[in-house]
Every structure is written in C-alpha cells, then in structure tokens.
Design a protein around this nucleic acid. Structure first.
Lengths: 148, 148
DNA sequence: TATTGTTATACTCTATAACTATA
DNA sequence: TATAGTTATAGAGTATAACAATA
C-alpha cells in the first residue's frame, strides 16, 4: 500500500494554505501588520458596529486573543476603542485615519502578493479555484457569516 | 474601500486548509495519531531509507521536531530506529507490523473524512480542484519533491 | 442569571543553540 | 570541517478559568 502525500487532495490544500499564509505574513511585515491583524482591521473597516467577540467568532479564534490584538492596533494608532452607548459592556472599534491609510496599503500589498501566487492560473482558472474551494469550505465553516 | 475577507481567494484557501487540518486531526484522533505523525509514518512506509532530516525537510518543519515525534511513534511500537550501516550517523526508520496496521487504518479514516469533506464536488470537480491547487503550490513549495 | 471584555496562567508548539558521534 | 541526531531552553501562540462591569 503506497499513496504519496502530495497526491492526497487534503494534504495538498493544507500545505497550500500554510504557504499562502506565510506569503501573506511576508507581504504585510513591512507594514508592521500580522495577517490576523489585517483581517481584524479589514472587518472593523467594513462594519464599525461589530463587537470584539463577533469579530473573533467570525474569524475563528478565541475572544481572549482579541484583547492584546486590539491593544496592539490601538497602540499603533490604527484603531480606537469606544464604549458602545447602547450596551456599555461592548466596545465599538473605530478605525482611525492612519488605520485606513495602513489598511489601504495592506490591501495593495496583499493584492500584489496574490497576483504573484496565482500567476500560474489564468482568470477563469482562478475564478474556478475560488468557487470550488468555497463550495468545500461553506458547509465546514458556517462562521464565515457574521452573527452578532 | 470594502472587500470582504471571504471574497479574497487567499483568505478562503488559508481558512480551508485550517478546517481540513482540523478534520484530519479529528479523524486520526481515535487511532492516537496526530496528522503530522500520520504524514511521517506514511513517508517511512513508502521509503524506509529516508533519514529523519530528509523527512522533516520534505514535510517542511524543523529537524529537531522529528526527535520527539519519532520517540512517540517508537514508544507506541509503530516504528523502529536502526543505525544505517552505510552511514552510522543516520537512523533508518523501519515501520513495524503494528505500524502498518495502524497506518492502514489511518488511511481508511483519512479517506472517509475526505469523502465527507469533498462531498459537495463531483469527481471531475475534485480532480480539477486538485490540479489547480497543485499548480499554485508547485512553484511555492519545491520541498514537495524529496531531496536526500 | 447571562454576556462583554479583561486578566492571569498553564499548556502546546516551535525554533535556536550547543552537544555527540560519526564522516 | 561538515553532517545526523539529540538535548536543553526560550519564545510565541493558544486556550482555560476566574474576575469586573453591565445587561
């Protein structure tokens, strides 16, 4: 019985994810951002009403991690915590002007990196890869949809 | 400027890899195996002449990790270390009969899990996903080819 | 009583450097 | 001098439980 690992689709996709994450980290490093910080910043930018728990839930990690993560973004001047007047337990996370500038640069860096990484595929193939990956992921990752 | 994370192909594939790994761990847990141990065991089974360094290099982690990993597999009776007579610095890793039985069961568990995970795709689509992922990964992961 | 954010802490995982034995 | 394997150790990352404030 022999079945080389790279011929297992699962192994292939897991390894691909690892490599893509590594590339993303490298692309963001010059901006002083980790990949996860970029994700959080991007979500805050899209919806400033999200609670810290909602964000960690949507991205799939423990809520306690948000504390030091936001501490860091706040210290960098990219985000500000504000008490939610409607529910004073919650923090509303507001992206600052600096934060938007950094986020914009981060998007450019990420897009450039992705263009490099997906170079081997033409437009249709990349669209196809996206669609196929999405169909596999959707049933396994209901968290993709934000639930408050 | 707004671009939801799940619409980024890179983010999608990274998350997919995370979820697939998690599923693999769960499938192997009843056998007392971690995913990485399964990978190593599989490589040893395919080629008993590989050194510990060759295996860690091919799988993409630090050689020092192999020590406790093989310690564990050896303690479970799945693998035996033997001095390579040709180069007495090296260990040749031989899979035991128990190891082969466990590996066989592990393959079945992994295949069953993968059938579940890729259920949304038909055969052609799964082949296509594999091929596309492979074409993106190949230039980024030369380590897929084992080099002694 | 339940929930948000926080803190403290312990546990896992990993990489770094230094050591040994062989080449 | 260089390499395979090992050991010890420190660092990063994570989850767990307990707490304060608020609902």
């Amino acid at each position: 019985m022999t079945l080389a690992l790279p011929e297992q689709t699962g192994y292939l996709l897991i390894k691909l994810g690892e490599v893509l994450l590594e590339q993303a980290e490298q692309a963001l490093a010059p901006l002083g951002l980790r990949a996860r910080q970029f994700n959080v910043l991007s979500m805050i930018n899209d919806d400033p009403t999200l609670s810290q728990r909602a964000i960690s839930g949507a991205l799939g990690f423990d809520p306690t991690i948000m504390v030091t993560l936001i501490d860091d973004l706040e210290q960098k001047g990219l985000v500000q915590r504000e008490r939610d007047p409607a529910d004073r337990r919650r923090h509303r996370l507001r992206i600052t002007a600096t934060g938007q500038t950094t986020l914009h640069r981060a998007f450019i860096a990420i897009n450039r990196a992705q263009e490099q990484m997906f170079m081997p595929l033409d437009v249709d193939e990349k669209t196809n890869l996206h669609a196929l990956a999405n169909r596999v992921l959707s049933p396994l990752w209901p968290g993709a949809q934000i639930s408050l």
